[in-house]
Write a protein that binds this DNA or RNA. Structure first.
Length: 189
DNA sequence: CTCTCGATGTTCT
DNA sequence: GAACATCGAGAGG
């Protein structure tokens, strides 16, 4: 299964967010492989996007977004949750795609143990999938093109007509034009 | 199913 | 000191 290379990420963030649907997110931990198909993403498009963490410039937290594409930007929020983002576009452009939901493919029992839950509640939210995959701040800045620990690989070709777009979730603080932008992508099968 | 609300601690003002 | 790219429990329909 081919690991997505740097070139895949060094593209327009909206295109990457769309192209990630149907790809496989893989986490290898202690020799065990957890995997899931990406079914929901959101694009965060740099300093001009008032919903993006980079909107107010570079800080210690968001520094990874300003670096090379193809790295993981993992941050902690609400006092208890981690979120996984994949850095996009050329170095210096602080853009990323938030992975909001995946469909479990492998290592389901491991995910159930970490989540203390079963079925649909396993990975159907950005913090839930981080918990299921044991993704925390130690993976902030991780190079996804290495194909170790955490990466994304080709998996399934998605027809354009089965992709739905909506506005992004949980960004009431942003300007109206960014609140209303259709920058959330869902694979509806 | 829907809605409301509290948890919890890091980050930046 | 306020805000936060969320989740889960509980109440009600």
């Amino acid at each position: 299964m081919s690991v997505l290379d740097r070139k895949f990420y060094r593209c327009d963030t909206l295109q990457v967010a769309r192209a990630l649907l149907g790809k496989k997110l893989v986490r290898r931990i202690n020799g065990i492989e957890l995997a899931g198909m990406i079914v929901e993403t959101e694009a965060y498009c740099g300093e001009a996007d008032s919903a993006c963490h980079a909107h107010r410039g570079r800080t210690p937290r968001n520094a990874v977004m300003f670096g090379e594409p193809g790295h993981a930007y993992v941050y902690f929020t609400y006092g208890m949750h981690y979120m996984l983002n994949l850095v996009t576009e050329a170095k210096g452009r602080p853009c990323a795609v938030l992975v909001r939901a995946i469909l479990p493919l492998a290592g389901i029992e491991e995910m159930e143990a970490r989540r203390r839950r079963k079925g649909a509640e396993l990975t159907n939210g950005p913090a839930k999938l981080c918990q299921a995959f044991s993704i925390d701040k130690s993976l902030n800045g991780w190079d996804l093109t290495r194909g170790e620990e955490l990466w994304v690989a080709d998996y399934k070709k998605i027809p354009a007509e089965s992709i739905i777009t909506t506005s992004r979730i949980g960004i009431d603080y942003a300007k109206k034009e960014h609140r209303d932008a259709l920058w959330r992508f869902l694979y509806r099968f």
